[in-house]
Design a binder for these strands. Structure first.
Lengths: 344, 344
DNA sequence: CTGAAAGCGCTTACAG
DNA sequence: CTGAAAGCGCTTACAG
């Protein structure tokens, strides 16, 4: 391993001068800077991050909290996997590396201890465990944070505009002529409100058309996977056999719901129209006609990285950043009107 | 931040003694060790990894190379995502963190420079870019490596026993009474031989039954995704309409292949039997009856972490470790015999 | 514009 | 069994 002192000997300058030249700070003549930079290149010099981190207190490490209890898919989660791919690219450009925070590290540290241990400079909270007490402390732990799903006090959240998506779903179905529309949700939570927000927007939109939104058309499934969608749809349909459409908060649930509907002999969309959410590749091949919403994972990742980098630089963060979801029109919605092709 | 010196003052011992007590090395009386450990706990002390790394030359960081050009799914790759979930858990227990190696880091470092920069202690090569020249140098770069797919000179590979899986596929189809069996492959490569090895085993097994394995029943698709499977199946079937079964090297390809077969009016398995590979969740919902092979991602990850940790500890690694794949019997294979339920 | 000194927080021989 | 000294590779004031 070649160090700054080797370079000092070779060039005749002192170690601090080498440091300044290589980091581009301090005042140096262009000439000495050049000679030093060239010498470093020729010698194949690579700085030692541990030494850098120790003296500057900057590790250039971003901690990531990714637990995914709700879907149990880890890196393979339909939203989070892709989000992480992009986020990683963004921060690497800025010279940061990702570091997964874990509660199981070294036989059980807290996330924050893990951060201190590694001098983590910022935290990306992709998806924490439900009701994790430690989350509440993150906003005041002194390390800049950004969240891409959960609401955490004092932490900026970059997240899909779920209410707007809910509105669009309601509008699509309403304008297609549906009168009785079901809503298949997932557990409503205050901090992780994707399902709740989608319902709020959906309900508000229907009400804006002067329709009362009867609670009996709402069924909250017990989880986010397809088995729960099957059960939820069964309950909803047995209670409200008059529905002609249903908006489901995620594609995995929608897949289960469709499975039930198909099993009882219903045709989609002729008997019942379905709109899902996520544009989940796991479901797409099986249900290629399912209308859905695509969350803009690249955009969320990019904005999250910007917010976090700003936070590290000391710039105050906004409280929340919303990213629109895109409605993907395919074939699972029947229109009772034949007026025109709608564009959303 | 509280340091070892704070602890020294509080307890009356010297810094080196604190260090020994906390790390459990050196000789110390149980009494002083206890007082120190308790004081550390009470003070909420967390060691500083940068300082540790600088003085010990051990960063406790494992570099990961994950590019996934072939499937373009990044973290969402059917094999690699799950493998990484498990690998991460294993090495965290040993006090290591994952660090993704990148060629785009800091405006373009090599993997090895990235490693030196972070003092990475070991490298997990999950899936590199095809024909990456740097791969050839990894085996002799001085950093212990383990690969979970690609063959790299001087590096231990922990990988599915593809030949054996190919044999099983051939046996299943042969014993079911199939005579003309197609093989749908993906690009055959020397270093990343999953497709090639599956073919070798498949061919050897058929030959062991005294059947000649005509090359015309082999079709190599252009890539690993479903569009390529569609095209490949089309070519294969138009050339060999006499086949009654086909073994496909991955589920995504199998999905494309089945799409073609269905389109031309064939029934699966009545007209043509299909076996895939990967037990890919992305395909499973769409093709729930597809017989396939499940690679043991947890086992591969666990063995890879063991090999790597051993390598870091200076224990020489084996050249290759094979992990059996499990044949998943479902409904896409027709049997012309009605003898008995086979168990594999 | 350049360098000598001190420090970041920890560990490793080496004395005692 | 415990501690004084030196060092890991880098950077930050501070002189000159």
């Amino acid at each position: 391993m070649i160090t700054i002192y080797d370079l000092a000997k070779q060039t005749g300058f002192s170690a601090p001068t080498i440091s300044k030249a290589l980091n581009g700070n301090g005042k140096l003549s262009d000439e000495t800077r050049q000679t030093i930079v060239e010498a470093a290149k020729k010698a194949g010099y690579t700085a030692n991050m541990a030494a850098k981190a120790l003296s500057t207190k900057h590790s250039r490490l971003i901690g990531v909290i990714l637990e995914d209890v709700s879907m149990q898919r880890g890196f393979e989660h339909p939203l989070f996997g892709g989000l992480l791919n992009k986020f990683r690219k963004e921060i690497e450009l800025a010279g940061y590396d990702l570091l997964f925070l874990s509660k199981h590290f070294n036989e059980g540290m807290s996330y924050i201890d893990h951060c201190r241990y590694r001098d983590v400079e910022g935290i990306l909270i992709v998806n924490p465990i439900d009701d994790d007490e430690e989350m509440k402390t993150l906003g005041t732990c002194g390390i800049p944070c950004v969240s891409t799903n959960e609401f955490i006090p004092g932490v900026c959240t970059v997240v899909t505009d779920n209410e707007n998506a809910g509105q669009i779903a309601a509008r699509v179905l309403y304008e297609a002529g549906h009168e009785k529309i079901g809503f298949l949700g997932a557990p409503f939570r205050e901090n992780s409100p994707a399902a709740l927000e989608r319902y709020k927007g959906f309900k508000a939109e229907l009400e804006s058309y002067g329709k009362e939104c009867d609670e009996k058309y709402l069924e909250v499934c017990s989880a986010w996977w397809d088995g729960a969608g099957y059960e939820g749809m069964k309950k909803l349909y047995e209670r409200c056999p008059d529905i002609t459409a249903v908006f489901v908060v995620c594609d995995a649930l929608a897949f289960g719901a469709m499975k039930y509907l198909l099993e009882i002999g219903k045709s989609i969309p002729n008997d019942i129209s379905v709109i899902g959410f996520d544009d989940d590749t796991t479901v797409l091949k099986a249900a290629p006609t399912l209308c859905t919403f695509r969350q803009d994972r690249d955009k969320i990742a990019q904005l999250a990285s910007e917010v976090l980098l700003q936070g590290i630089a000391g710039v105050p963060n906004p409280e929340i950043v919303r990213v629109p979801a895109e409605y993907i029109q395919r074939g699972s919605v029947r229109s009772f009107r034949r007026i025109h092709q709608m564009a959303y």
